[in-house]
Amino acid sequence: MARRSPEPLLWLLFSAGGMAAALLVPILLFLFGIAFPLGWLSAPDHTHLLSVLRHPATKVILFGLCLLCLFHWAHRFRYTLYDGLQLKNLSLAISLLCYGGAVAGSVAAGVVLFRI
């Protein structure tokens, strides 16, 4: 069958991203975004975090998390613009913005994480 719609694969990325975000983002955001800055818990020192980040498994997991989260955002944001603001006539521009943003963000994540 010669139908090559990207929709199923984008949906798989969206779903995988939704699952990854649901499982991992709450604790990471709570610790680094709220608990450490407010002093509820003492922030880990630099050497410990650097050693964690230098572990290849951490790099791969974090890169995967960033990529999937960004594609998750792209998919949801695209449909929010379509439906919430009724902008479906701008669908090409919106798709470029959303998925282009996700690709650019993933490249940036790769550069940051794998240079550590």
Binding site: F32, G33, H72, A109, L113
Partner: peptide
């Protein structure tokens, strides 16, 4: 659906932190 925007913000925040470390 808007939660997606904040998940994207988390990615930015995480990368800023990883870069700083």
């Amino acid at each position: 659906e808007l939660s997606g925007v904040f998940i994207a913000w988390f990615v930015v925040f995480l990368l800023l932190m990883a870069g700083a470390i």
